[in-house]
Computed example of a mutant assay.
Amino acid sequence: MADIATTLGPAARSTSQERSLGSLRLDWVVTILSLWMIAGIHLDAWAHHQFDVETFFTPWHGVLYSGFLALAAVLAGTLARNLRKGYAWRRAVPAGYELALLGVAIFMGGGVGDMLWHTLFGIEVNIEALLSPTHLMLALGGALIVTGPIRAAWARAESSWKALLPALLSLALLLSVLTFFTSYANPLSDAALAQGQRPNTDDEWFLTQGVGVAGILIQAALMMGVILLAVRRWARPEGRLPFGSLTVMLTLSTLLTVSVHEDW
């Protein structure tokens, strides 16, 4: 699964001075495994809505952490392979994946901390599950990991569907992480109003409307932030985003968001 390193400098430079470059193959592997991991996060959230989860060791955590371990193995294997080829430590990580390795360390620390947290304090519910320190560590680590293909593609000049699809899917996964951890202010996370359920008092009306407006503003800001990131890099005068790029990104992110709730 490791990428085939290529050289940046003149042929006379030694391997230890060269920078290991990523490959489209590595981008695809990381993207697919990232989808596995992020799907595990949403599956775990779905399970919390359906069942009384009282332990850290669940099948849904198994999906989440197996995806993470697969990602960690791919990144560590790529690093080890490049080291065997003679690359220096600081240059053995493929371009764009430096922060992904940092994300692996953060996610691992968050996972161990989350297990201890659940053992000591029990299982969080509702909004506290999204804002617990260990879950925020997992969010940060996961975001750094899944955005590896974005940073790798950023350094390349290609803008075709073939070259950019892993990066576009990676952007969708980044957006899904952001929307997941702000689901307390996300209209797509609560279908009550769309189904015609109405508050009973003026105070409930005010609170419901306030949360609804805040959710629209927050989610619009997150969505446009991700879109503008893509546009800034790949839709400049000398290039353009492939037709349908935004549709792919937003569709995948939205499907992951609504999958947590069965009332849609």
Score class of each variant (00 low, 15 high):
L140Y: 06
Q209I: 12
F181K: 10
T58F: 03
T6G: 05
L175M: 09
L193C: 02
G86M: 03
L43C: 02
Q209A: 13
Q50M: 14
L131R: 10
T58V: 03
V226L: 12
A172M: 06
D190S: 12
L24R: 14
A105P: 01
W205H: 11
V260N: 06
L250R: 02
A139V: 11
T201W: 08
A143L: 10
P94C: 05
A95K: 11
T254S: 12
G148S: 10
N126S: 15
W60Y: 03
W264D: 05
Y97K: 04
R151W: 12
V104Q: 04
H49L: 08
A105R: 02
R25C: 02
A167Y: 06
L140W: 09
S14Q: 08
S189P: 01
L75V: 01
T201G: 06
P149L: 07
L130I: 08
E158Y: 07
Y184H: 11
G22D: 04
H61A: 01
A88E: 02
N126F: 15
T147N: 13
L21R: 15
D263R: 08
R81T: 14
T134Y: 10
L165T: 11
H61T: 01
E128I: 06
A157D: 10
L228I: 05
A143R: 06
R198M: 13
W264P: 03
L140G: 10
L252E: 00
L165G: 04
V248H: 11
R13E: 08
I106N: 00
W264Y: 14
A95I: 09
Q219C: 07
A163Q: 10
I32D: 00
Q50C: 11
L169T: 10
F68K: 01
L252W: 01
L256N: 00
I216C: 09
L26W: 12
D202M: 11
L102G: 10
I123K: 13
L138W: 09
A214L: 15
P94Y: 09
T134N: 14
W264C: 05
R81W: 14
L246H: 03
T134P: 07
E238S: 14
W46H: 07
I32M: 12
A76T: 08
T6F: 02
L144I: 04
A235C: 06
L217K: 04
V231P: 08
G225D: 00
T134F: 13
P149W: 09
L136Y: 10
V248E: 12
F181L: 12
M137T: 08
P242V: 07
L175R: 03
E18R: 15
L168R: 12
M1C: 00
S132E: 11
L99D: 04
M223E: 02
R81L: 13
V93M: 14
A155T: 06
E158S: 15
A167S: 14
L241K: 12
A73G: 02
K85T: 06
F51N: 09
S170D: 06
L228N: 12
L188Y: 01
A191S: 04
H118S: 07
A105K: 03
S159C: 07
V248W: 13
G9I: 03
A191P: 01
A95W: 05
V226W: 09
L140K: 06
A76F: 04
A39R: 08
I41E: 11
V211Y: 03
A2K: 13
W117R: 03
H49V: 03
A194R: 08
L222P: 00
M115P: 04
P10H: 09
V260Q: 07
A214S: 12
W28G: 07
L256G: 01
